[in-house]
Every structure is written in structure tokens, then in C-alpha cells.
């Protein structure tokens, strides 16, 4: 099966007042049709930025400096804004974190959905409205027919995120980027939204890139996971492998610091130090100053990918740690 999305050796930089700063460095990822890939990491690790590289909505001072992004074998990273407009929404649907601010307050839900449909195809008013209603029903808005002409502020947070999902998926994109889709929601609503996302991606045969910092969300939803640290991939592989038998010291530390019902500890273990800023990424392995296994080689040579089972681990001691 050929990949739906392929990211090859992608690097991105920020132009700041203190010069060019590397934000993403040599990212390789691929996504099979129907697959759900989670990008995890701390804030600032570059997971949202990586997803912005795919849909082309980079911040103004950021650009892709190296590498390519391929959607169904076609390069999309070098397209003009006009060409990307045709792809965004139609082939790549994006869901943002905060449903409160994702919707335009002055237009009804119906107006915003039909506007999305009209951006990509010729469709009559009546058909567009009918389709909007179907979409709202599909994402499980109760009484969708009555609420079609309601304004965003008349919906609760969870319902608004359903509306956002309906809009992002209005044109049946093959790729869905969900950028922290549940972070702004109540815990009780989170599971419902994730379940909805999973069901829709299955129904439509769409792949999902799920950006999150929540390991629980990863375990529940994703098929594969890529752990990002300081703009680089630390470890990627099937969720079960990475979460149950983490091979990279950073993943191990990350998972070790999650509270658990089984392990009763007086004090949660934590990784010493904090993630370096983009201007201060150390030489060699980016994680070396905080790593318990650090050796001379880590301070000098940036680790290559080491295969450990179905995983790729960017650590000099991957084989040893994985076994």
C-alpha cells in the first residue's frame, strides 16, 4: 500500500530578530491511508509546526528550508497559495484546538458550512443547505435541523467542536489534521470527540494526524505515534510498542512521569531540566544534557535512526535500550 502522505527530510526555520533559527530538523514521516498517527511532545517541540508544514498555514516568519511533503505522490510544499487553497479543505481538513475561537461569531453555522462547500464546488443554495444539515447530523448534533441557522455562541464547547469537525470534513478530505482537538474541552467531552473523530475517519477512509501532548489520547486513538523533541523526532513506531516498551530515554522519561494507579510512588519521577529553546539546541543528540544514558558520543554526533522492531529510534543506544 503506497503512503497517503510522505514527509521527507523536512526542516523549517524561523526568521527572528536574532537571525535564522531552526524549528524543525530532518523530519521523516509517512502515513498510510486510513491510519491515525499521533504527534506527541511538549509545547514547543514542533508538533503543531509540523502539521502546519503539511497544510501550508505556516506563521508569517516561518518557512520550509529543506525537504518535501508529498500528498498521494504529489509534492505540495512548493505550491502557490492559490493552488494550496484548492487542496486545503478539499483534500486536507484541519481541526484546531479551540472551538470557541475557530468559528466566526457573526455568521450562522449554516452560512459557514455552505461557504466552505462553495469554495470548492458549484452547488445551489438549496443543495448546500441540505448538505450542511447532513453534515451536522453526521457529527451528532441533536436537533440539527433546528440548529442549522444558529450562531456559534449558541452552542456549547463540545457541540462547537462537533460543528468544527463537520466543517473541516465537509468535503471528505483524505487527510485530517487535528491540532490538539480536545485540549480545550472538558474531560467528559474529550472521549466523545475522539470517538467521533475515529468513527468518521474510519467511515470516510481518511487518515488522521493527531497533534497532542496527552499520552492517554494517544493510547486511545492512534495507530502509530511519533515523539518529537526540540524539533526532531525522538522515536516513532506503533502505539503499543512505543507506549509499552519505549526505547528512547526521552520517551521513557515522559511515560515514567505519568501518574499510574498501579505504581504507588511517593513522588512522580521527572526528567531533570527542561527542553532547550530553539536558539540553544545542544550539539549532538538534542536530549543529551537531560539524558541518564548520556555518553561522549551523544555530545558530539547526532544519532541516526536505529531500527528496533517496528520502531525507528533516534538514539545511539537504541538496540541496547529496546531489548
Amino acid at each position: 500500500m503506497s503512503a497517503l502522505l510522505e514527509i521527507r527530510n523536512l526542516s523549517a526555520t524561523f526568521a527572528t530578530r536574532r537571525g535564522i533559527v531552526s524549528a524543525l530538523s530532518n523530519i521523516d514521516l509517512s502515513l498510510a491511508p486510513g491510519e491515525i498517527l499521533a504527534l506527541v511532545g511538549e509545547s514547543g517541540a514542533g508538533k503543531s509546526l509540523a502539521s502546519s508544514c503539511i497544510n501550508g498555514l505556516l506563521p508569517r516568519n516561518c518557512r520550509i528550508s529543506e525537504g518535501e511533503v508529498l500528498l498521494e505522490g504529489q509534492r505540495i510544499d512548493n505550491l502557490s497559495n492559490k493552488q494550496m487553497e484548492k487542496i486545503r479543505g478539499a483534500q486536507i481538513g484541519t481541526i484546531f484546538q479551540d472551538p470557541l475561537t475557530s468559528l466566526n461569531p457573526l455568521y450562522t453555522v449554516c452560512q459557514q458550512i455552505t461557504r466552505t462547500l462553495r469554495a470548492h464546488r458549484y452547488i445551489s443554495d438549496a443543495d448546500a443547505q441540505k448538505r450542511a444539515l447532513e453534515l451536522l447530523e453526521e457529527v451528532g448534533i441533536p436537533g440539527a435541523a433546528q440548529r442549522l441557522h444558529a450562531y456559534p455562541h449558541e452552542f456549547s464547547g463540545g457541540m462547537r467542536q462537533r460543528v468544527v469537525i463537520a466543517m473541516a470534513l465537509a468535503l471528505r478530505p483524505k487527510l485530517i489534521i487535528a491540532d490538539e482537538p480536545t485540549t480545550a474541552l472538558d474531560v467528559s467531552i474529550q472521549a466523545q470527540i475522539l470517538e467521533l473523530l475515529r468513527r468518521l475517519s474510519k467511515d470516510h477512509g481518511a487518515s488522521v494526524i493527531l497533534v497532542t501532548h496527552d499520552m492517554g489520547v494517544v493510547a486511545e486513538t492512534a495507530d502509530r505515534v511519533a515523539v518529537l523533541y526540540a524539533g526532531r523526532i525522538a522515536e516513532t513506531g506503533p502505539v503499543a510498542d512505543v507506549l509499552l516498551r519505549p526505547a528512547h530515554p526521552y520517551t521513557q522519561g515522559l511515560l515514567g512521569s505519568i501518574p499510574s494507579m498501579e505504581r504507588k510512588l511517593a513522588r512522580l519521577p521527572q526528567i531533570p531540566g527542561s527542553m532547550p529553546g530553539l536558539t540553544a539546541i545542544p550539539q549532538g543528540c538534542a536530549f543529551n544534557p537531560r539524558c541518564p544514558r548520556t555518553a561522549d558520543v551523544c555530545r558530539q554526533v547526532r544519532p541516526e535512526a536505529h531500527l528496533a522492531g517496528a520502531r525507528r529510534v533516534f538514539c545511539h543506544f537504541a538496540e541496547e535500550l529496546a531489548s
Binding site: 487553497e85 487542496i87 486545503r88 479543505g89 481538513g93 484541519t94 484546531f96 475561537t101 466552505t116 469554495a119
Partner: peptide, 29 residues
């Protein structure tokens, strides 16, 4: 700069629609 404009871009709305359809009314209030 609002998030709903970013979301509108993510849905593939053209610049023209975003300026005059999505943003203008919010600007004029």
C-alpha cells in the same frame, strides 16, 4: 489574526472570500 480566519484558510476559502466575507463584517462592528 483571529483563529476563525485561520480556520477559514484551512478550509480552503480564497483570500477574497476571507477578506470580504469573513473578516469585513467583524471589522465594521
Amino acid at each position: 489574526e483571529q483563529e476563525y480566519i485561520r480556520f477559514a484558510r484551512a478550509r480552503g476559502l480564497s483570500d477574497r472570500v476571507i477578506w470580504f466575507g469573513e473578516a469585513l463584517k467583524n471589522t465594521l462592528v
